[in-house]
Simulated scan of single mutants.
Amino acid sequence: MQITLLGTAAGGGFPQWNCACRNCAGLRAGTLRATPRTQSSIFVQADAGGPGLLVNASPDILTQIQRQPVLWPKSGQRPEALVAGLRDTPIAGVLLCDGQVDHTTGLLMLRERGRPLPLWCTDPVAEDLSQGFPLFGVLGHYCGVQRHAIPLDGRSFAIDRLDGLRIRALALDSKAAPYSPHRDAPVPGDNIGLLFTDTRSQRSAFYAPGLGQISPAVADAAGSAQLVMVDGTFWTDDEMPALGISRKTAREIGHLPQMDAADGTPGMLRWLGTLPAASTRLLLHINNTNPILDEDSPQRATLAAHGVTVGEDGMQFSL
């Protein structure tokens, strides 16, 4: 199994187009040692060089395709060529962790596919994308969508053409999209984490770009994985209110910050420290305000001291 990080930023990317915070302004001016990032997405292949699964379809998907050779079409080299052997794609399907804009808008950029796009999502996300944000209806005028339901009962499932790869979904404590009828009354399946397992190597990767709380099921799945890729949106719970950007805290919008809360409630960093030392622990879905983007910051040094890596676009991992 090979996993490529296509995008590692939260919604808006880094730098964010309308933001002049210390991070965004410093990156533009060249006074901050930091790396630009596109919005959150990964590509999972059962075998390097073969077809794979696009997990979340970022608004930046076209830029990600241009930058990552694993996503380039190879005309005439695969049986799935779409039009006279000239158009094909290594994207065997798309899986959505939630119905948020920054994880779904890229579906519109895949409309020239030429046949229905295989897509895996939960029932609540399918409802959101059929009603509150009706992307499925729009795509029906182009390639269309061949939707597959994701089970939330602990069963693993497979993706066509990705032999040797099994996936298990876990319902997460987070938030549905603002246009979802479940926004203030969450239901299981609004947001999921994913455990990918290579049945040949018996090695696994856990992926949860939106994670508001560590449940026993999440702890067990992450503890069994050799690669753990989780929500790195905010450093502190009050990061956005302190900057005057929002009145809502990290936890109120469904993200577990890296640092413990003022009342001692554990944050992401303390939990990651409980995972096996041999595992690779990555933060992604990083908001443009998070000080860990500054490679010379004390917060970045704290992560390094705890064996936690800040994910970057283009990183690849083989399991």
Rank of each mutant, 00 (worst) to 15 (best):
M229F: 06
Q226R: 13
V228C: 10
A222K: 07
P209N: 10
A225R: 01
G210T: 13
A208V: 03
F206A: 02
L227E: 00
P216I: 10
F206K: 00
D220I: 08
A225C: 15
A219E: 15
D220S: 15
D231G: 08
A221K: 07
A217E: 14
P216S: 11
A225G: 04
T233C: 14
A219C: 06
S204A: 15
D220P: 00
V218P: 01
D220T: 14
S215E: 06
I214V: 15
V218S: 06
F206I: 00
S224H: 12
G232S: 12
A208W: 00
F206W: 14
G212K: 03
G232M: 10
P209L: 07
A205W: 02
A219V: 02
Q213T: 13
S224P: 05
A219K: 14
A222N: 09
A208H: 09
P209F: 06
F206T: 00
S204R: 11
V218H: 09
S224I: 05
A219H: 12
G210P: 00
M229T: 06
L227R: 02
A208I: 10
L227P: 00
M229R: 08
G212P: 08
P209T: 09
A219N: 09
R203Y: 01
T233G: 00
P216R: 13
Y207P: 00
A205I: 02
A205Q: 02
A225T: 02
G212F: 09
Y207M: 04
L227H: 08
I214S: 00
G210W: 11
P209W: 04
S215A: 12
R203T: 12
I214D: 01
A225Q: 03
P216K: 09
V230A: 12
S204V: 09
Q213V: 06
G232W: 03
A222T: 05
G232Q: 10
G212L: 08
G212N: 04
A225K: 02
D231I: 01
A221Y: 02
G223C: 13
F206V: 01
L211S: 03
A221I: 10
A222V: 04
G223I: 11
R203S: 12
G212S: 13
G232A: 12
G232E: 06
G223K: 07
D220A: 15
I214G: 04
A219R: 14
V230R: 05
F206G: 03
M229Q: 03
T233Y: 01
P216Q: 11
V228N: 03
S224Q: 15
F206E: 00
Q226G: 15
A221T: 10
L211E: 08
L211N: 02
A219P: 08
A217S: 14
Q226C: 12
D231M: 10
G232Y: 05
A222P: 04
A208N: 09
D231L: 03
G212A: 07
P216C: 08
F206Y: 15
V218L: 09
P209I: 06
S204N: 04
P209H: 04
I214F: 14
P209E: 10
L227G: 02
A221P: 10
P209M: 07
S204M: 11
V228Y: 00
Y207Q: 07
L227C: 05
V230I: 15
G210Q: 14
